[in-house]
Design a binder for these strands. Structure first.
Ligand SMILES: [Mn+2]
Ligand SMILES: [Mn+2]
Ligand SMILES: [Mn+2]
Ligand SMILES: [Mn+2]
Lengths: 252, 252
DNA sequence: TTATAATATTAGTCGAGCCTAACTTTAAGT
DNA sequence: ACTTAAAGTTAGGCTCGACTAATATTATAA
């Protein structure tokens, strides 16, 4: 063999579907997959056999389907590509949700690791750069609506100056350190230090979450536990006590 | 029939190849296409028959291939999608030329008209917005190299302020009107008025080249004729006398 | 527990898109 | 004009990924 790897776009979609279904229903049945991908039963059976051969799913006839460790890793990577593209299409290009969704799911199969990294980084940069941020993205929206007018830029640039001074000498205006467990949904912060230990620490370091990396809180469950965060394009769900071990400097 | 349209990714690539080869060699031979797409002869013959059935190419056995009017239009649209993606990947994400090229040629097949429009507009916006421009893109490059530092932003924002004032009250600092025929390669300008008549005028208006639209000069031939310009994602080649009918306000 | 409905699998078909091997046509050189 | 090389086509085969129709299994409910 040369490199028996390289899944087809089709098989990637099956794997992606299985992961998504698994996340909400525990395990995937053939019917679920069939519905999710709009294909008929026999197509699913065929795909499952191929995926089982490649050790990406646990599959026995008439039984439910689950991902192997390897399969899960691959599937998560596909979802990551999907989400990175979705973020770009929806949040940056500001296409409507449906277009962003279906386009992302087609493009995802042609995005290499290096392109993915750049894309994630780019979307992050659009949001984080003091010249950019939501203001900048809104400027694009305004530009789309109103021909080629840049008249929203003046107030924006003033905002940029403020943002910038916070980034540069954060020591005076806003050194406020805060634990990740105390932050509100939608807020963001740059990692100051990681007090956490064990699995969480390792997981964060594996993601390249070094001090300075921006963390965004996506959702906090009713009792403040668990906390869903986004970091370098990854989604992560942390228990409150785990989140308390991560010290941030608040942004914006 | 419902809509016998919708070319496969493969056929789109054949059409794209034929256009590109035609542009440099007048007409495409089977061999050229075969080489361009890295497929063997019989694959080309098969594809050509399908394209001929759809009235997209003129094809007779053992003869050279040319595009029909319809085929040319479709091919040009594919190239436009390719180039829009390439611009984004190469100029904005700043991926290396090869990655940008091959990725664009895969992604192009899943880009709808509306996504294309947004993407073209976005790349344009990144370059034109006074908060953005090359400085902003360079900021992204710096951010990629140096972890997550935004320390290049200060001088950039000052530059932004200057750009902005030119955009807003261009009457004082730089109302300089100039004919498109007098501008240098790499320079850009916003359309003030279109004095041109006839075909060129119509062609420009069809592209939606209204006053305010940004035009960039790509190349000027040795004798100043013809002039290659980029406008709203389209490439356009104008004779000097045609270009003289377009009045611009210089930018940056 | 047994009938019935819901799910899943098998078997066989089809088109797209590639290939190799063998043959035909065209172009070039002598 | 004749020979030969290059280019192009035909014939036939293969994989992928979908489908339908028929069959088998499992779940459900009387
Ligand atoms: Mn997909
Ligand atoms: Mn997807
Ligand atoms: Mn392509
Ligand atoms: Mn292409």
């Amino acid at each position: 063999m040369t490199s028996a790897n390289a899944l087809s776009a089709s098989l990637e979609d099956y794997l992606e579907a299985i992961l998504l279904i698994t996340k909400t229903k525990g395990a995937a049945r053939s019917k679920d997959i069939s519905k999710h991908l709009s294909v008929k039963g026999p197509s699913v059976t065929g795909a499952l056999r191929l995926l089982a051969e490649k050790d990406l799913v646990h599959y026995a006839p008439y039984d439910v389907v689950t991902l192997t460790a390897q399969g899960r890793a691959v599937a998560e990577n596909i979802v990551k590509r999907h989400e990175a593209l979705h973020s770009f299409l929806f949040e940056v290009l500001q296409l409507d949700e449906q277009t962003a969704e279906s386009t992302a799911c087609q493009l995802e199969h042609a995005i290499s690791e290096s392109v993915l990294e750049r894309l994630v980084r780019f979307v992050q940069f659009v949001k984080d750069c003091p010249r950019g941020g939501n203001n900048w993205v809104n400027g694009f929206a305004h530009n789309c609506d109103s021909g080629a007018s840049y008249d929203v830029c003046e107030p924006c640039i003033k905002q940029c100056m403020e943002n910038l001074s916070r980034y540069q000498k954060g020591g005076e205006t806003d050194t406020m350190q805060i634990k990740l467990s105390e932050i509100q949904p939608g807020e963001r912060g740059a990692i100051e230090s990681i007090e956490a230990a064990g699995t969480i620490r390792r997981r964060l370091l594996d993601m390249g979450a070094t001090p300075g990396t921006v963390v965004e809180v996506e959702r906090v469950a009713p009792m403040g536990d668990p906390i869903d965060v986004k970091i370098k394009g990854y989604h992560l769900s942390l228990r409150k006590e785990e989140a308390a071990g991560i010290v941030l400097k608040k942004i914006r």
